[in-house]
Design a protein around this nucleic acid. Structure first.
Lengths: 248, 248
DNA sequence: AAGTGGTCTAGACCACAAC
DNA sequence: TTGTGGTCTAGACCACTTT
């Protein structure tokens, strides 16, 4: 049995997690099997129950085990048919890939009326709508095009720099004094229509990812909409590896 | 100032989280601003520091705040341009949507050699490969088609029931005595080729999601590959709402 | 030196499940 | 009744940042 080294820089709860993780991955503890109780683990490894729990929590977050009050803690069947995909801000995503993100503004317009799909999403235009359209590039190559619609307060001046380099939610917060607090996104597979094909420089009928993003205010009202079309031949989504969160 | 009700069924750490969350969403505490220290919050709400920390951990996991050792805890800028999508086992996903999942076996074959894309993924065929192809339906409607490739041990008999109703990783575990422990998935937007168009009953060139899934053994060797094609007109991905994990 | 978050302890009480 | 996980407390020491 491995021991906990209390003089190590690696905190005990983390050392224990590594030990238990190995028992699961090696097959010594099989799915469905119950772990020793928290008190027992505490005795075995000479740790307080609190520390043992912190370690178990970590493993539970990663889906390796699950606890049931009154019954015990059990090894989970690895859920490998489950994948999570993360789409981050374009700039962040490209930097993670080691590519240089770039933007090219194609349109900026003030609209008196909202497009139909925006109305269907429950958005209202009290004073007017600011619309803009940008090409997103990576190392100079066109990756995607985005269309954004946001409520517009007449009083505020619009600075091009602003929506050029700030996150959409910040642009909204600055221009409307409403801080978006929640968002929802829907991802669909589509083929490029004429408008998108031209913007993305691909042939009609090429595959694209379409991402529709809606930002909501604290009261649950939509205050901004983003529509993204990613080139299917240049962009794809890769599932996250096991998260391995520490504590915070 | 709201108080903590210690007789409530809702545990104190959760009550506090609700209070602090509201301060953030209402704009009373703005992004970048520092929270009161953990000791201070403990005094204010008459809770131990441990309980306060548990609550802060929850908010941190959800991305509302972030802590910095020696400096303090700060309200995060809401990252609304970040979306996470979860694709679960087909059966699970359809049940969540209130639809009846169904399967139709199209092919089962033993292959002597691996297809090229599987070799490129590092898979090896020591004894042979079991390949099968199924249509996935929801309330009778064709949603997707899957192609699966797994290592095959000659000794074991293959029961049709097995790969009809068990998760891929279980089928592999039973037939090869190797427990897959890790998986990676890649999602791309494509247009249907002839084979997929026929199977999915859509016209050539229709948009589809392609999901490539690779299962790895403990030693890091690929032991199974799944290839999914989802009809773009019937399937899309919706971002997760704020997770709101409790403790475990 | 003082204040902050990060970790750990020993002990308590509760809700729940199994015997 | 016993054992399990879920929650909470009061206090300690550490590492890090700021003054």
């Amino acid at each position: 049995m491995s021991k906990i080294n209390k003089n190590s820089f690696i905190p005990p709860f983390y050392q224990l997690a590594t030990i238990l993780e190995q028992k699961i991955y090696s097959g010594e503890w099989k799915p469905g099997q119950s772990l020793p109780s928290e008190n027992e683990l505490g005795r075995e490894y000479e740790l307080s129950r609190t520390t043992v729990r912190k370690c178990l929590n970590m493993l539970a977050e990663r889906g390796l085990i699950s606890a049931q009050q009154g019954r015990g803690t059990f090894v989970s069947r690895p859920s490998l048919d489950r994948a999570t995909f993360v789409m981050d801000e374009f700039k962040v995503e490209m930097e993670q890939l080691g590519k240089e993100p770039g933007y090219r503004l194609v349109h900026v317009r003030f609209l008196k009326e909202l497009p139909e799909f925006a109305i269907n999403l429950g958005m209202t235009a009290d004073q007017g709508i600011l619309y803009y359209c940008r090409l997103l590039t990576a190392d100079g190559e066109t990756m995607a095009v985005e269309h954004k619609y946001m409520c517009y307060s007449k009083g505020k001046p619009i600075l091009e720099n602003e929506f050029q380099y700030k996150a959409f939610s910040e642009v909204i917060a600055i221009n409307t004094d409403i801080l978006p607090v929640r968002s929802q996104a829907i991802l669909t597979a589509e083929v490029a229509g004429e408008r998108e094909a031209n913007l993305l420089n691909i042939s009609l009928g090429s595959p694209v990812f379409k991402l529709q993003q809606v930002l909501y205010s604290n009261e649950g009202k939509p205050v901004g909409i983003g529509l993204f079309y990613y080139r299917g031949d240049r962009y794809n989504l890769v599932s996250d590896i096991q998260p391995l969160k520490g504590d915070r």
